[in-house]
């Protein structure tokens, strides 16, 4: 589904990604871990197409298409969803209106009929109940005045409504207490399925207790320095990111 080959990206003359290689197959859940500044969030935003980052080398294939040639909303329409670490506030635009506009924009791109208000509201109600969200949140402006937990739940709600093919969760666990974390993880797990892939970007392994990944990758200094199964995450928790330094040094030495 997703194939990243030798991806290099920079922001304001600063190289951040320095050769990422990653393959994610449909039906899989991948976790990307790494210390602060390792490039995790950058990778997520490069996938979404944020224009602050410049891809200098490499390619990304998404269902056989060249992702880098698509603009942000085309990628969204193609089923790529990014759950933001810091969801954006849009004053005056109600959550409900926003969601419906987004759903219909995607449908329009695919030449599908637009969703009618009744079915939309029904779907919305179901998903909100699942995420334990209060009805009133729909009438409030997008993310405005939401607590950190509410914002994250709202991201998962959008994901549930938009039913993406590839979901990228950028530090969705940050700022969540354990109950909220469980609810969010449940939301993600419901979406797990054979026709969908999920990339979980996280600093801590805690989230992976709830969303169990098929593969874990460790990012350091813009490269994937180790890949493995779930046990890699536990090993990291045990030893901390410190032990990677020797590894990455070794890896760079090997690369030279």
């Amino acid at each position: 589904m997703l194939e990243i080959k030798n991806l290099h990206a920079k922001s304001e003359d600063k190289d951040i990604l320095r050769g990422i290689n990653l393959q994610v197959n449909v039906g899989e859940v991948h976790a990307i871990m790494g210390p602060n500044g390792s490039g995790k969030s950058t990778l997520a935003h490069v996938l979404a197409g944020r224009e602050d980052y410049e891809v200098t080398q490499g390619e990304i294939l998404y269902n056989g298409q060249n992702l880098l040639e698509m603009n942000i909303e085309q990628r969204a329409a193609a089923g790529l969803f990014l759950a933001y670490q810091y969801p954006i506030e849009i004053p005056g635009v109600s959550n409900k209106y926003f969601l419906k506009a987004a759903m219909n924009a995607v449908r329009k791109q695919h030449g599908q009929p637009l969703i009618d208000t009744t079915s939309f509201l029904k779907l919305l109600k179901e998903n909100m109940q699942l995420l334990g969200m209060d009805k009133s949140m729909m009438e409030r402006s997008v993310n405005e005045g939401f607590s950190g937990g509410e914002k994250k739940r709202n991201e998962i709600l959008q994901m549930a409504m938009l039913q993406p093919k590839l979901a990228v969760l950028d530090e969705t666990d940050s700022g969540l207490d354990i109950d909220a974390l469980r609810i969010v993880a449940d939301g993600v797990n419901t979406l797990r399925g054979p026709d969908r892939a999920i990339i979980v970007v996280t600093h801590y392994q805690r989230l992976l207790d709830y969303i169990v990944p098929d593969q874990v990758h460790v990012l350091a200094e813009g490269r994937i320095v180790r890949s493995g199964d779930r046990t890699l995450a536990l090993e990291l928790e045990d030893k901390g990111y410190g032990f990677l330094e020797t590894h990455s040094a070794a890896a760079s030495a090997a690369a030279v």
Binding site: E51, I88, G92, A101, Q109
Partner: peptide, 24 residues
């Protein structure tokens, strides 16, 4: 960027943001 990531075109995103600004 946020609106576009959810599939909206730039001009629709701007319209939505501006209309939100004028809501009161």
């Amino acid at each position: 960027y946020y609106c576009r990531q959810r599939g909206l075109k730039t001009e629709d995103a701007v319209n939505m943001i501006v209309n939100g600004f004028c809501k009161e």
